[in-house]
């Protein structure tokens, strides 16, 4: 056995280990998502379908909480799409690294989310002829897919078993869960202004437009601020 092979075996074990622990961390969100889905009025199969088919946490949370707050199906769908735009950027970044085609490409695309992309990009692209990056992406994507869906099922089933969600504080848990999702994303003053701007627009519009629309309107803040700050960079 040569040195490269030994090094690769070591690296491989570490990558797979990290992928597994990320999967378990994400499963915590999965339980909350499953609980939220059934609280929002979705059936267990519908909640599961979101985790299996949509498989992008922030979009899933957005869709069900828009429905939970009384928004129409259409506003909920559009909000989930807007939230999913960043995945396009992720798969653009990952495609040349993964070198997939045909059915492999279609599976890789579905597994392209925050965690798998971050893990894939965290490896040295040149290491082991790109095998480290590819393994990190696939191992993380698959481990998150498996545990996210398992956790969704556990969350969905356990909430269906309890009575009034409000008496368990589940409505507050939804707000806190969404807050915990956005918290680490706010890294600058601009991010913070966008967060407050989005929140204020949504609250100001709540009494005057149908539920769901206020959240969509908040996208305008991101578009305007993104336009202005992006133009300075270009």
């Amino acid at each position: 056995m040569n040195t490269t092979q030994t090094e690769w075996n070591l690296a491989r074990r570490q990558i797979v280990g990290n992928a597994a622990s990320i999967g378990f961390a994400v499963a915590m969100y999965g339980v909350s998502f499953g609980a939220l889905g059934t609280t929002a009025g979705l059936s267990i199969p519908q909640t599961m379908a979101l985790s299996l088919l949509m498989f992008t946490g922030a979009s899933q949370f957005t869709l069900v909480s828009t429905l939970a707050s009384g928004g129409t199906a259409l506003t909920a769908v559009i909000a989930s799409w807007l939230m999913g735009t960043r995945n396009a950027a992720y798969s653009m970044r990952m495609t040349p690294i993964l070198k997939t085609s045909g059915p492999g490409r279609l599976v890789a695309v579905q597994l392209t989310i925050d965690e798998s992309t971050a893990m894939g990009l965290a490896q040295d692209e040149e290491a082991f002829e790109g095998r480290a990056s590819r393994l990190a992406f696939w191992a993380t994507g698959l481990s998150v897919y498996l545990l996210w869906n398992l956790a969704t099922f556990i969350g969905a089933v356990s909430v269906s078993a309890i009575g009034d969600p409000k008496s368990f504080g589940l409505d507050a848990a939804i707000a806190a869960g969404l807050f915990a999702l956005v918290w680490p994303q706010i890294k600058s003053r601009t991010d913070l202004s966008v967060a407050f701007g989005g929140a204020l627009i949504a609250l100001a519009l709540t009494p005057v437009v149908p539920p769901g629309v206020p959240v969509l309107a908040a996208a305008i803040v991101a578009i305007i601020v993104g336009w202005v700050t992006g133009r300075k960079l270009s």
Partner: peptide, 17 residues
């Protein structure tokens, strides 16, 4: 920039609502 900021504005709006 827009792709980066969209989740921040949407999630914050959801938290508020």
């Amino acid at each position: 920039r827009i792709v980066l900021l969209l989740p921040i504005s949407l999630l914050s709006a959801l938290v508020a609502v």
